[in-house]
Design a protein around this nucleic acid. Structure first.
Lengths: 250, 250
DNA sequence: AAAATAGTGTCTTTGAGACAGTATGAC
DNA sequence: GTCATACTGTCTCAAAGACACTATTTT
């Protein structure tokens, strides 16, 4: 598994550059950031994947993967800033919903070396188009059987963890609102909940729950186009996205 | 903040040992694991802290910190294994409740270099004593004003995040059972919930909730010593610790 | 007017809290 | 027996689901 000689500490960039013996003696893992970016595309919850290159030194050539890459210590002040940078590069989106999922680190998840990845998940509005950065092909995949598994590295389990977190949080937060344009109607919001939860919800209970939680606020404007126009809402500024209870599981 | 010369990539241990140009060109952050270890001590929720050394090259000399340290890539197969190793070294406990909290990484959290820490939180039973590993002084501190803040590095916010996660999860899981010996009575469990939540709970509602969730099971034995003996329970093997709803916040 | 979608009212059900009551062992 | 603690029963209340109803627009 590990190909590094186990005979003793090896000098590292840190020690060369900083001259700190204690820290320099530590063998450092690779550190990356990966992001599961979700959006509603074609009325389905979808995730953005990028295809890896084909070179002989590339791990997992041509496999699909979550967008991500090495933390660049000279460019990124924090790992979250690194995630935002990669998100911007891949989607052009500057202020999505972004939350850390956790970190995965082991000797064998990257064939090149011991590595740790810091995983985020992001929700972006369905009215935003994304264009490739020109470096790697990218594509939205509806979650489910259409995901081109196995993904590169351990991204299958990272994606599964992100989906689980999203679906868990949908039970007690207004996260799906972040999958919609800034202004949305209650029927649109309900539909988004139903897509993510993959089950139907009662209209009356849904409305009561959303409106009593003070997580969304009226804009005063209406959306025409269907039959009866619907009131437009937006996310409340100060809200923590929290809903008072869970949907009852019947 | 950063003292590394920004003039270009610097060679690293990885490249020396493995000869991979692409990976070798990456400047690697320090990678550590820190653990917030909670237990009930003297009827109060407490956290185990260690005191840092005094040497002139030591960051944050004599400050208290969460137990932790560098990931040792030759010893640890995964970051979770690293957390378990450190937990064993500090407490002698082999199978506590252990959960990842997340990762924090930035240029300025460690004065020695850009660093990423992977944070876990652990719950250990109140009947287990802990002895120091002899390397550093360690001590249980009740959470609250007794915590010797400021802690080293960014451990104040790490501890705050761990406390928040614990208190949040206590609302909808049986986590406090992991703070008790393997066999416990319902009044003891209720008391533990009350200590963590810092509020009193109704006895009848508490019992109904615990027993209907199938998260604990009777042992058939009783604990004597008080007045009427109480039935002893243990955590159910297969349970995911999940309770059906939250305590109502009145 | 008809159709379709937005939104409301009312009844039922579920489950948690309040709190009084009963059970059982120590002394 | 008395006392303290373990445990249960019953009532109330809050909130979510079911579902029928009304409202407002387009055609």
């Amino acid at each position: 598994m590990k190909k590094i000689s186990p005979s003793g500490p090896v000098d590292t960039a840190g020690s060369v550059a900083k001259g700190n013996k204690l820290v320099g003696a530590i063998i450092r893992p690779l550190v990356t950031v990966d992001i599961a970016i979700f959006s509603i595309r074609n009325d389905a919850l979808s995730v953005l994947l990028v295809q890896r290159g084909e070179g002989p030194e590339e791990p997992f050539p041509l496999r699909w993967a979550l967008p991500g890459g090495f933390v660049h210590v000279q460019m990124d002040a924090t790992i979250e800033a690194c995630a935002r940078r990669k998100l911007l590069e891949k989607t052009g989106v500057t202020s999505p919903y972004l939350e850390q999922l956790g970190s995965w680190g082991s000797a064998d998840r990257d064939p090149r070396d011991w590595s740790v990845t810091n995983v985020y998940f992001a929700l972006i509005a369905s009215d935003l188009s994304t264009q490739s950065d020109g470096i790697a092909p990218q594509q939205w995949f509806p979650v489910g059987d259409a995901i081109p598994r196995p993904l590169a590295f351990d991204h299958d389990r990272l994606l599964d963890a992100a989906l689980k977190r999203l679906r868990d949080k949908v039970e007690y937060t207004v996260l799906p609102a972040s999958l919609l344009p800034v202004e949305f109607t209650l029927p649109e919001l309900q539909r988004t909940f139903e897509i993510v939860l993959n089950r139907e919800l009662d209209k009356s209970a849904f409305r009561t729950r959303m409106l009593s939680a003070n997580v969304i606020e009226e804009t005063g404007r209406y959306r025409s186009g269907s039959r009866r126009p619907a009131l437009l809402y937006r996310l409340a500024e100060d809200s923590a996205h929290q809903l008072p209870a869970t949907f009852r599981k019947n």
